[in-house]
Design a protein around this nucleic acid. Sequence first.
DNA 1: GTGGATGACTCAGAAAGCTGGTT
DNA 2: AAACCAGCTTTCTGAGTCATCCA
Length: 875
Amino acid sequence: MSSSDSDDPGLTTITVKQLQTVPRPRFTQASDSDSDDEDQPLAQKILQKRKAAPILAPAKQPPSALASDSDSEDDKPLAQRSRPQPSKAVPKPLPARRASTTAAVAAIVAATSDSDSDDDVPLAQKVKAPPTKRPAQATAPKRKPAAHNDSSDSDSDVPLAKKVKSNSNTPAKKENGRVVSTPGKSTTTTSKAKITASTSKATATKTNGKVKVKAESKKSPGSDEMDEEEEGEEYKWWLEQNANDTIKWTTLAHNGVYFPPEYVPHKIPLVYDNKEIALHPEAEEIASYYAQMLETDHAKNPTFVRNFFKDFRAILNRVQPGHPITDFDKCNFTRMYDHFEKLREIKRNMSKEDKQKLKDEKDAIKSIYGFATLDGRKENLGNYNIEPPGLFRGRGDHPRTGCYKRRVRPEDITINIGPKAKVPPPPPGHRWKNVIHDNKVGWLAMWRENVNDQFKYVQFGATSSLKGQSDLKKFEKARNLKGCVDTIRRDYMAELRDKSMAIRQRATALYLIDKLALRAGNEKGEDEADTVGCCSLRYEHVTLQPPNILVFDFLGKDSVRYYNAVPVDDQVFKNIRIFKKPPKTEGEELFDRLTTTGLNNHLKSLMPGLSAKVFRTYNASHTLQEELKNTPANGTIQEKILAYNRANRRVAELCNHQRAVGKAFGTQMEKLQDRIRALKYQRQRMALQLAALDPKYKRKHPAFYTTEGGEEGEANLSPEWNLAHERDLTAKERVRIEAKFEKDNAERKARKEKPLGKADLQAKLNEAVTRKEKLLAKDKLPSVKEFPPLSERSGNLTERLASGIDKITDRIKNTLLQIEDKDENKTIALGTSKLNYNDPRITIAWSKKHGVPIEKSFTRTLRDKFKWAMDVVAK
DNA sequence: GTGGATGACTCAGAAAGCTGGTT
DNA sequence: AAACCAGCTTTCTGAGTCATCCA
């Protein structure tokens, strides 16, 4: 790697505009002074140690796939062993049917009869209709709130925490310094004053940008209208200097949010104690949510069932007093399940036209609700659909999993919009909870979900300038960290021996965050799943393995297991031993003197804007960059992509990004293995044939003639398998011949010709399969001469066979590689790191350098999201 | 200055949906 | 050539992080 500068697009601290003159990374300069591999980021080192063999081996030989994996582990030092099956602690739910989908299908099925009537209405209009059309919604909502909160029946639409605030009837008031106007009035005098003040400030900074592309100047700056469609020049926000990022917008207009369709009762009874019980629609709805999940792991989770049943009963008690349902085990949901299964089936088998229609409708909805106008530019939103009701699918052993997640109504929703923009009308008969004009936040609508009282937002999408800016900021911060990480590391290494326990803990935690890319680890409540990050690690999560190995085993975010045995600095090892000293015991915090706030406050003093998560971004991006240096400069595109994916995988491993092993993984793998066997069998037959023609060949390629040649040779071929395979081939051949015969005859019939008789078919079969079949019936393989893979007529048979064998050998190699790749990817999810941690500029620069089209590494959406990076690297 | 509550945003894996190659 | 399916992409929403406010 000679061209040092171009190798380093991602992690050097520079401003965007200076990009052409990339200074040498600071940490490489530092390398002279420091001992051994001090200059390498810790995470990098550990990764190399963990996975040393495959990645760093200079040899270009194809890794001997499966052989290397399991058996050889024992002689590796502990730290190099791959993690033992990092199984998820949580059972994976099977594909679940979603309420909204099936309801939609039901609606379609129901509507098919009268659907013709409004065919001439333009789509967009049709789409707007639903809110108006919904009969149930026009009247005041009858449905009572979440059953899990028994006390909330009375005024349930107001989340408890907010009640005090929102009860006020004053036309406009300040909430936390935020301007608020009551629904109905879109602007108020107070808010106007406030907004204009901030507006002028913001426009001042923006106009400095100057580079701002035409689109902006086309319209009057204050216009909040949504009508202008500017597809022309796009807005390159990254060319502007962005002084103020606390102001998120100066004008903001949007059409509000889209509500899921109302529940359509199906009137299928619940079978309770073998008797049918007709359910009130409200009870039926929640029962249906459960029924649809019957075949998932959720439905087998006791907490889930308990929570669901409690909420189900609460609703029953209210709407259907005197019902007999008391025992979950006597409930039989299968009839409902079957019903939804049927709907799914119908949806699957929908005609192409109907599917298209559905899609068009969805697109039309998106065209209305999927975009907002931000400072005069149309930008797309992330989520504009209000979450449909259902059962809360908490992950891991979330104590509230299975609770009824209530339908969100306009009365729950706060709209945030520009003061001059038209407030989107709530569905008829409804009102928004609130309308505010807060330009310091980026959301357009907000509500609180009833199960955990959490905030939910409608926000701009990942491709928007707003998100793009903060993305760029994030990666710039990681670059900044690169500039001072050496100092920070020296600091915390020294502090590992500090007299103060608090400082010692802080340094130790920071060491782990830096080295292992752990998350910060905030405290969590009783009513959440028990998962931890660095600061919240407990006694039992780390065990000591002298002399210096720490074994981590805990559930992290999303209850994903983190298991890792790592050699650490001696002082770190000592410290952990101290932190675990009795009387401390299981259940107690390892870092009892440390909080994430404390840690982050300290980090702020080391570098502006620094927080724990920045280390994760930095180490991930840096790992990517380093691993990409293993790209074979003269390799094919395919090989380079492989190298890229491998680097990507290293990052995912570092960050412990996991995924569930697919249901079909085992069978898919077996299929691939079979494919290899079939190829090897074919190769062996050809080799035998060739040996008969050219005895020298056998001496040159002994591996093809034995079952003991390892992966290269014909290992894992057995007489039994060969026989079964040959039978399979023969049976397929027979079917093929018979099918062709039928087809030919059908054609003849169509042409009014005389069809061929049975004798013709028999003759064909005799020629191709009958003899083989007879042999196989006697457990004998057909002799090689009866397996001529190549026509004798076409040239020199010896040569043809030899080249045919070579081709098969290549295919075997490729399949082997495919297996290896698949196996390595079994539990690793690459997407998250690509989307959130890898500085896109690294990938883009790599693409350019190696002549790999960017489409190979970035999908359409990724390219959209990272437009800023593509533009910047291009220069 | 500490510690808890609040709020807004990023990050996360599962599931749905799509696509393109195979049979 | 329709049906299938595996792998990839997108959508969905739950689960984190972290700044800020306030007592």
